[in-house]
Design a protein around this nucleic acid. Structure first.
Length: 242
DNA sequence: AACCTAAGCAACCGCGTCGGG
DNA sequence: CCCCGACGCGGTTGCTTAGGT
């Protein structure tokens, strides 16, 4: 493998503070696997001492999690996995580790790389399934825009700091119960996102409707990661597009 | 054959969070 | 509380490979 040649011959592996860096060799992999067999995962900073590896804990953990773990699924992302990635990314954004938890055998790094190469630049998925998922998302967004046009006149903003002098952020329940007109300026968008992030977990007492609304909030990103301007979302109707 | 470019992927970096002392 | 180390996460980098000209 080229990495090993690089590591041996090209100055890779010169150490900063005594740690080797760069590509892993087969021998290093073997030592790390042995270490995990004996001591289990975790305590990565002990690896150098107990396994004789000149790697820092961070590097060891990364190598294990992304490459050496026995439960990793090798090979290409399947169309089914791809559609899951699309759906979950539409819902959660760049929460790669969260997405990875829903794809057994796949790592956050793998999913992140896959997304970047397949979707971020081109904006075009490579399979029919992905196209369908994408089309579904587009339908949702079009629907949201349609609803926005219909309701634009009698909607109210959820951004309290934009009306009068109230600086308080809304509670989760307030956020869930109100009709929303998304802001159009970047400052307002930033505030809305910080509001959403400030109650990033759905409370246990949230109703099904709240959950739908919550999903909707996370679906407001457009395909390039920006908030769709003035998109309108109404939870009761969202199920039409699931 | 030589060169160029985009895709793919392993690894690194910086930062945030958490838990123990 | 506060500090510090360990860990996890998301963003980025840098290299190889494959395909096109």
């Amino acid at each position: 493998m080229y990495w090993e040649i690089m590591a041996e011959n090209r100055g890779w592996g010169l150490m900063e503070e005594g740690w080797r860096k760069g590509p892993w060799t087969a021998e290093e992999d073997r030592l790390l696997v042995e270490y995990v067999k004996l001591h289990g995962e975790g305590r990565w900073n002990n690896v150098s001492r107990l396994a004789g590896l000149k790697r820092n804990g961070k590097s060891c953990r990364l190598r294990w999690v992304n490459y050496l773990r026995p439960d990793l699924k090798r090979g290409q992302i399947t169309p089914h996995e791809e559609s899951i990635i699309l759906e979950l990314h539409a819902r959660w954004g760049n929460r790669w580790s969260t997405i990875a938890r829903n794809l057994p055998g796949r790592t956050d790094n793998e999913i992140k790389n896959y997304w970047r190469t397949h979707f971020k630049k081109k904006g075009k998925p490579s399979s029919q399934n992905a196209e369908k998922s994408r089309a579904r998302l587009l339908r949702r967004q079009q629907f949201q825009l349609q609803q926005q046009q219909q309701h634009q006149t009698n909607t109210k903003t959820i951004l309290p700091s934009f009306d009068e002098n109230d600086n308080k952020l809304p509670t989760f329940t307030q956020l869930m119960r109100q009709e929303i007109v998304l802001p159009s300026t970047s400052d307002e968008q930033g505030l809305l996102y910080s509001m959403i992030n400030s109650c990033a977990a759905v409370p246990e007492q949230a109703s099904n409707e709240d959950m739908l609304m919550w999903d909707g909030l996370w679906n407001l990103d457009d395909l390039h990661g920006n908030i769709t301007n003035r998109a309108y979302y109404q939870p009761a109707l969202a199920s039409n597009f699931c």
